[in-house]
Amino acid sequence: MTVIVWTAVGSLAAWLWLLLGQGFFWRTDVRLPPGEDPPRGGWPTVCVVVPARDEAAVLGESLPSLLAQDYPGRAEVFLIDDGSTDGTGELARALGRRGGLPLTVASPGEPPAGWTGKLWAVRHGLALARAREPEYLLLTDADIAHAPDSLRRLVAAARTGGFDVVSQMARLRVESLWERLVVPAFVYFFAQLYPFRWIGRRGGRTAAAAGGCVLLRAETAGRVRIPDAIRHAVIDDVALARAVKGGGGHVWLGLADRVDSVRPYPRLHDLWRMVSRSAYAQLRHNPLLLAGTVAGLALVYLAPPVALVAGLAAGGAAAVLAGGAAWLVMTATYVPMLRYYRQSLWLAPLLPFTAFLYLLMTVDSAVQHYRGRGAAWKGRTYARPDAIPEEG
């Protein structure tokens, strides 16, 4: 019991530090800052770039929301069909003929070595957009639906706050049992790694964005060489934010109220694939970081319930108190995210189970990487960055 007690005490100490010392990551009040409407200098030109590969199943709900944007300035949408085989390009053209913002559908062909398909598509879209001389670029995924005033509010916030990047973490779909268990925790874990309050600090080192909705100043994109500088990044949104911050830019990231993902993940297999395809890349394909992550997840999330149960079984009051207190703090920090996703608060005590699933997904991501199937998505598998030759 002594080992269990000290492990539980360590977990409790970790949770007290996370509660107070990790940028209040558990709070969900970091939302899009208000902006002047109209902003000083008027409404700038904006080009929207949508990379899409085999997205016909969701495009009918997402693309019309972009074309119907209530934006007072000049705006145009570029959908880049990244080698789709399901009629994505044809569907996009048909949707564009219904009216709304101007739509251009183009295809860049297969990406060259050293490029991910998404970033190659983004590069092609930015090249087309450059002819319109936009002040801002909205990079958004093909499964993201925007409220009619989304672009207007993003631009107003960026102009008023002087941000180079304004990114919103789209509200993911939460309908199936597995989505309820896994999706809110996904955003919770992301915020724990990248506290939104720290990201918004000028001069701070923490940098991240959410790829589903990124408003980027065009001048900044050119200055820091987006997307060329991050061409091989599997986790491209975080890489983009780091490049912008590294170039002296100001980044803001928060939770969305009116930007939603329409992509369903009805089965555990679907969610498992979403997480495991990039989890080991997040750890830089480093076995030591993997071991540390597994140990950290076990200490922080698994030790509290294990200590509580073991203490109750063996009559160890210290284990019960330390394990129970750590589990209680953990549960309390998860409640705001469940409220944001409008889910039952009874899911909060199940966070250790969900964390155990993420632990397994992370290990599986490493296993798939060493089997040569890591970072696989929609028929493509990407090499680790240090295996890619640099351009001359």
Rank of each mutant, 00 (worst) to 15 (best):
V3A: 12
W6V: 07
S11H: 11
S11F: 12
L16Q: 07
L16R: 04
L16K: 02
W17E: 07
L19P: 10
G21M: 12
Q22C: 13
T28D: 10
D29Q: 13
V30D: 13
G35F: 06
E36Q: 13
G42S: 13
T45H: 08
P51Y: 00
A52K: 04
R53H: 11
D54K: 02
G60P: 00
G60R: 00
S62G: 06
L63I: 02
P64H: 01
Q69T: 05
D70C: 03
Y71A: 05
A75N: 08
G89I: 01
G99C: 05
G99K: 05
G100L: 02
G100K: 04
P108A: 09
G109T: 14
P111A: 12
G114A: 05
L119W: 11
V122I: 14
R123A: 13
R123H: 14
L128S: 05
A131R: 09
I144N: 08
S150K: 12
R152C: 06
R153K: 13
A158S: 01
T160M: 03
T160K: 02
F163Y: 13
D164K: 04
M169I: 08
V174S: 11
E179P: 10
R180K: 14
L181D: 03
L181Q: 06
F186H: 07
Y188N: 04
Q192D: 11
F196H: 14
R197L: 06
W198C: 07
G200I: 01
R201Q: 15
R202Q: 11
T206E: 13
G211F: 08
C213Y: 08
V214K: 02
L216E: 01
E219T: 13
E219I: 07
A221R: 09
G222S: 12
R223H: 14
V224E: 08
P227E: 03
P227A: 04
R231W: 01
D236I: 00
D236A: 02
D237Y: 11
V238K: 08
V238H: 07
A241Y: 02
A241L: 08
V244I: 02
G246I: 00
V251P: 01
V251H: 00
W252L: 02
L253V: 04
R263S: 06
Y265H: 09
L271F: 14
S276K: 14
R277I: 01
S278F: 06
A279T: 03
Q282I: 11
R284E: 09
T293V: 10
V294M: 12
A295Y: 09
G296Y: 10
G296C: 12
P305K: 08
P305W: 10
L308T: 12
G311Q: 07
G311I: 09
A313H: 13
A319C: 12
A319E: 15
V320I: 14
A326V: 04
V329S: 02
A332V: 15
Y334Q: 06
P336F: 03
Y340D: 01
Y341K: 03
R342D: 13
A348R: 08
L350C: 11
F353C: 09
F353H: 03
T354A: 14
T354D: 09
A355G: 14
F356S: 13
F356A: 15
Y358G: 03
M361F: 15
A366V: 05
R373D: 11
A376I: 02
A376F: 02
K378W: 11
G379Y: 00
